[in-house]
Simulated scan of single mutants.
Amino acid sequence: MANHILLLALLAFTCSVAFSFEPSPLQDFCIADTTSSARVNGMVCKDAKMAQANDFFFTGLHLTGNTSNSLGSKVTPANVVQIPGLNTLGISLARIDYASWGINPPHTHPRASEILTVLEGTLFVGFVTSNPENRLISKVLNKGDVFVFPVGLIHFQRNVGHGNAVALATLSSQNPGVITIANAVFGSNLPIASEVLAKAFQVDKYMVDRLQAQF
């Protein structure tokens, strides 16, 4: 009897963990009310009777992103901010444009795994496993290829083909978030003490000061 109780408790715990991340909605939809100042884990629903087609619609992923920047890339998101009807549904998209040799720099999505599909061009992509292995898992992708980045892990893409490249990212969150590593470490507000970063990266303080000045 005790073993049965233990087994049931373990199953209950496992299920609670499995469904604790962006649980299924309890209604047909929950269109985000962007005018509400209420703070919840997600966005407040507007009256379902006020639903319109445009709440579930977004246009813009057909447009080429402007990659004339220092990274040579442009991300065009389609998440709950652009599509209020995504609220509570646990999915979103993004188009990523890459100039020749452009990069989508190392970053993480704290709330989502990502499936990247190459629409045009050739990309070198990869992610790094967690401590202590910190193993790089990488691959060169061509048009039509798909690669998965697990939730929370640092990942990147680089255009290694001839000409521009385009990819479509599908994410398992309505609001996946993004932490760009260089921006977060060297461009935080307030700045992380240069002494801390110098010791962490095993470089001198002058180098840290130069990097912080760029962000």
Rank of each mutant, 00 (worst) to 15 (best):
V146K: 11
K143T: 15
L141G: 07
L141P: 07
I115C: 02
L136K: 10
L123E: 02
G126M: 06
T122W: 00
V128F: 13
G126W: 06
N131C: 13
K143E: 15
I137K: 06
L141S: 09
K139A: 09
S130A: 14
V118T: 11
L116A: 12
F127I: 02
V118H: 00
F124K: 10
G144T: 10
S130M: 08
G144F: 12
S138V: 10
N134V: 12
V125R: 00
S138D: 11
L119M: 08
F127D: 03
L136M: 09
G126I: 06
G144Y: 09
E120R: 15
T122P: 00
N142E: 13
V125P: 01
L123A: 01
G144D: 13
N142M: 12
T129M: 08
L141H: 06
V125D: 07
S138H: 11
V146P: 05
N131G: 13
V118G: 00
I115Y: 03
V128G: 01
T117F: 04
F127E: 04
G144R: 12
L136R: 09
G126D: 10
N131F: 14
G126N: 05
R135D: 10
L123H: 05
L116G: 04
I137N: 02
T117Y: 05
K143V: 15
P132L: 00
L119S: 06
E120T: 07
V128K: 08
V125I: 03
T117H: 05
G144I: 12
D145C: 07
F124M: 06
F127W: 08
I115K: 01
T122Q: 13
V140A: 06
G121E: 00
L119Q: 08
L141R: 09
E133F: 12
L116Y: 08
D145F: 11
L136N: 05
K139Y: 07
G144N: 09
V128R: 08
K139R: 14
V118A: 01
G126E: 07
V118C: 01
N131I: 14
F127Q: 00
E133P: 01
D145N: 12
I115T: 14
T129N: 04
N134D: 04
V128Y: 08
N131Y: 15
F127V: 01
